[in-house]
Design a protein around this nucleic acid. Sequence first.
DNA 1: GAATTATGTCAATATTGCTGACTTATTTTC
DNA 2: GAAAATAAGTCAGCAATATTGACATAATTC
Lengths: 164, 164
Amino acid sequence: MTDLKSLANPLFLREDELRQGIELLFYAYRDFTRGPDEILERYGFGRAHHRALHFIGGNPGITVAELLGILRITKQSLSRVLSALIEGDFVRQQQGTRDRRQRQLFLTDRGKDLEHQIAMVQQAKVAQAYREAGAEAVAGYRKVLAGLIDEPDRAAILRAIQRR
Amino acid sequence: MTDLKSLANPLFLREDELRQGIELLFYAYRDFTRGPDEILERYGFGRAHHRALHFIGGNPGITVAELLGILRITKQSLSRVLSALIEGDFVRQQQGTRDRRQRQLFLTDRGKDLEHQIAMVQQAKVAQAYREAGAEAVAGYRKVLAGLIDEPDRAAILRAIQRR
DNA sequence: GAATTATGTCAATATTGCTGACTTATTTTC
DNA sequence: GAAAATAAGTCAGCAATATTGACATAATTC
């Protein structure tokens, strides 16, 4: 411990500790997306559809540009996904009130059902992990993940998340 | 439906708290993969190549089957990625010693360089988040992420991660 | 009125994943 | 020692998700 490793790293974060943190994120994300994938398959949808459903569900009236900013994909990629969701009556568009160029997005009842169905699976998984880890660990989990969000949007994202 | 809901919430974990935990994971993962992506692009590689490089680098001599089990993709998907890495002299194969059917995988010097280059970027990001959050938060982060890993492999993964 | 913005659309392409069928070499089992 | 199982590789085809660049329309802002 008082060896080369900590000398090489002035902040006492050993390389293998950091590697563990990185791999845990990989494994957790890998397994976290599995449940949703199985449900979505039954509707002919994929992960991209779920992300759209999720963020429209959590932000009713969100504009296309805002959604693009969250998902960090191109307009064309989102377009395909949104078209499918609108076509299947999971999402509806409404001309913006304050700016009529905008299309505000909302879940239909069907969309709410599907979003909720998937959310329950993910929430059950997170709830179980939270319960096993305890409240203090949860606070740490949130703190570290927040720190992994890139500036300069971190503050805005944290505000948006905690608004609800 | 009502069953799922109560399953998700037996310990007074409010839905919006769980949603926050879910979204933090999404945002953190989104930004966490950005740095690597930019480096990989210069080599004509993608995220899949990085995952292979990473786990071969961390587990020299890993077999194809073991790597498939970690990545949870099919043999054919891995094959394309592995072929490109071998072709470009980033990875080399060696017939297994204990079982000659196996091909053990190793990084070449070139592969180690690239893996290291990307690892530095990711480790810097994690180190910064760890520093900002503090040691106690880091423990919580790890505890919750570990809980998100699916059984029955969780214990084996945790052992493998901590072996180094 | 001109410039900018929000959205949508077209065509082409890349990456990453999938399935199913089959082969070869090797090890294990009976 | 023969049969079965296993590890790996390969082929052909397909699907989801992403990309870029160019262009069109409508509405807002300057």
